[in-house]
Structures are given as C-alpha cells and as structure tokens.
C-alpha cells in the first residue's frame, strides 16, 4: 500500500534554530496518528512544513505537489479559527470544495459534512454569529467536505464541549477506519490514547517516540517530555489513560523532613 504521507528528514529553521529537526514519517491509509508533545515542540510547524506552506529542508511528498493537486490530496485545519466575514455556515463549508472540478457533487458533499457535524440547523447562520464550539465544528465540516485521502488537523478538539470533542475524535477515527489517513496534533493525552492507533511524540523539534499509544505513553516519555506521570486504568469501557501529577522527587536529605 502507498503511504498517504511521506516526510523524509524534514527540517525547519527559524532564525538559525531548528524548530523542526530531521523528522521522517510515513503515514499509511487507515491510520489515525495523534501528534503529541508539549507547547513549542514543533507540532504546528511540522504540519505547515509537511503541506509546504513554509520553507523547509528535506522532503515532503505533499509539498512537492502543485497547490490544486495538494488540496485534493490533503485537507488542513489550522489553529487560526477567525472567519473574516459573516458568510453563511453552508457557504463556509462549501469553500472546502474549491479544488474539486465537478460542481455537481458539491451540494451533496456539503449537506453530508453539515449533518456529520450536527450543523444542518445552522446552515444559514452567519459564521461570525456562531459560538466558539459551533464555529470549530463548522470549520471541521469544511475539512470533511474537502473529501481528501489525507486530513491534517491542528488541535481539532480545541474549544469543544465534551460531547462534541468525543464526536469529533470518533468522526476522525471513523474516517481513518474508512481508509483515509488522519494526522491530528492534540493536547488531551486521554483522547489521543483512546482514539488514535498511533502516537508520535515530539519534543524540541524532534520525534522522540513513535508507536501504539501504550508504547509511547510510558512513564519515562511522560516525565521527560511533559513533566507529568500517567497510567492506563481499567474502566467499564476498556483501558483509559489518565495523566497524573509528577512523581515526587526522591528527597536527598532525610534530615530536612518534608
């Protein structure tokens, strides 16, 4: 099977500092990859460089495409969520169809994306009159309407209430299950462990761990990259991952008491 995304030694320098350093990654169709790491680890920069939106050294097969072909291959949800004009939600979602040549398929794709994001009743509402969570869903609907084999999303769950956060993760997992590839940066490690089949942990521009959630969310990686600890606990719905406060440092001098 051909990978949906291939990055080879991708490096982004800003002011002489490598903010993304030597990242090689292959994402296969059907995989939901969670891109995790502390603030400033280089997750957003990696996604931008993979798309070719910023200059980078190394290879990205997406960045090599012309903009139209790339827009049919990969849809991208950036972190910036501001919509400049009071366009209707339906019009916003339709923007995802821009790179597709056949206008006749647009209406069905837009209606489908709206209903998947639970937005059909808001189709005529100006995007600027939506709540933060509704807007986030509208922007994800645009991503779905773009109907690409690869989806790159920068914190798709940010600003959503628990029910819609769950729904978005479930949707991305289902899209992956249907043979698409999804790469999403995220901060909620519990959600990442629950829904992703693969986690890529970044720290200071490098990939420090890559594999199934249980292999990545180890005490050593959690302590080293996030400064927290965590554990997989059993629940009625299967094992769940919870983050926990860092383990207390061993006290070097017992005479000092606590």
């Amino acid at each position: 099977m051909k990978p949906a995304l291939t990055l080879d030694r991708l490096t982004v320098r800003r002011g002489g500092v490598a903010v993304v350093s030597d990242v090689s990654l292959r994402v296969m169709p059907g995989s939901f990859v969670g891109l995790i790491g502390p603030n400033g680890a280089g997750k957003t920069t990696l996604l931008r460089a993979a798309l070719g939106l910023i200059p980078a050294e190394g290879q990205s097969d997406l960045a090599a495409l012309d903009p139209g072909a790339r827009a049919r291959r990969a849809a991208y949800l950036p972190q910036a969520r501001d919509v400049a004009w009071p366009i209707a939600v339906e019009t916003l979602v339709r923007l995802g169809r821009r790179a597709h040549p056949d206008r006749r398929e647009d209406a069905a794709a837009v209606a489908d994306a709206l209903s998947r994001m639970d937005l059909t009743h808001l189709a005529r509402r100006p995007a600027t009159a939506l709540s933060g969570g509704e807007l986030a869903r509208a922007l994800i609907a645009r991503l779905i309407a773009q109907d690409t084999p690869l989806i790159l999303a920068d914190e798709p769950e940010a600003g959503l209430d628990p029910a819609h956060e769950m729904a978005v993760m479930q949707l991305l997992a289902r899209l992956a299950g249907q043979g698409r590839a999804v790469v999403a940066s995220m901060h909620d490690l519990g959600m990442a462990a629950r829904w992703c089949d693969r986690l890529v942990l970044m720290d200071r521009g490098r990939v420090v761990a890559d594999g199934p959630p249980k292999a990545v969310l180890t005490p050593g990686n959690l302590q080293g990259s996030f400064g927290v600890s965590g554990a997989f606990l059993d629940s009625p719905a299967g094992p769940v991952f919870v983050t926990l406060p860092p383990r207390p440092m061993p006290t070097p001098d017992p005479a000092n008491g606590l």
Binding site: L51, L53, A75, A80, V83, A84, W85, L95, G96, L139
Partner: peptide, 20 residues
Amino acid sequence: ARDLDALTLGEEAAASLGVN
C-alpha cells in the same frame, strides 16, 4: 474573486485550499 472567498478562512487555510 474565488481566492478572496477562500481567504475568508485566513491565509493558512486559503493556502491549503490551493490559493497561490
């Protein structure tokens, strides 16, 4: 005209949608 529509979502999103 068409590029300005896509730019409603910001420069990053517009670029990813194929706007040069």
